[in-house]
């Protein structure tokens, strides 16, 4: 027998971004505040970019936007910004990367935009991106989803042309499937 619940909790989904000066306790503070509303942290990604704290998290909880904002507001500081975005319940699923893109060369403006514009022009989607600068060496690594039907050879030619213009090295490789044991 199947019983329907009379009171279906209205769980809302939010994206929370926390960006600014790092200090110990930011993660503990934000998760603690969300926990007071039964917040359930789903996917999240946090890193330090040149010492700056950068965190995006997806959280589901039974509260409206204003309540979430009020809950998190005391944790914000002049140099640590917290923003909350309410998400539509249905989000498109994750796209598995089909290719890995590597770019490296002398730092100059416009490398990321020029290379990713070529990918976008072919209908490709960047699913993950890391950029690094050390001295004059600039490195871009991207996971790319190329839909079926994309002519990879043509895309590689276009990337080679852009890399020659920019004076950087660009490599597009088929992403390895993860081993499953």
């Amino acid at each position: 027998m199947h019983l329907k619940s009379n009171s279906v909790p209205s769980v809302n989904s939010y994206a929370v971004t926390v960006v600014g000066h790092d200090r110990p306790g930011i993660v503990a503070g934000v998760t603690g505040a969300l926990a007071t509303h039964g917040g359930n942290i789903e996917d999240s990604s946090m890193t330090l970019l040149r010492g700056y704290f950068a965190w995006t998290l997806l959280v589901s909880l039974d509260a409206d936007l204003a309540t979430v904002e009020t809950t998190l507001a005391p944790l914000a500081e002049p140099n640590l910004k917290i923003a909350v975005i309410e998400l539509a319940p249905e989000v498109t699923g994750t796209q598995a990367a089909t290719h890995w893109l590597s770019v490296h060369g002398s730092d100059r403006p416009g490398i990321v935009s020029a290379v990713t514009a070529v990918v976008a022009g072919a209908g490709g989607n960047i699913t993950d991106l890391t950029t690094r600068l050390a001295g004059t060496l600039y490195v871009v690594l991207a996971d790319v989803f190329l839909p079926p039907g994309v002519d990879v050879a043509v895309l590689e030619q276009q990337l080679a042309a852009v890399s020659a213009q920019l004076g950087v090295e660009v490599t597009l490789r088929v992403a390895d499937n993860d081993d499953v044991l």
Partner: peptide, 14 residues
């Protein structure tokens, strides 16, 4: 003419 950067296994491989 290749560096390990050219063979990095994905966006988080460096």
């Amino acid at each position: 003419g290749l560096l390990f950067l050219d063979r990095a296994a994905g966006a988080h491989a460096i």
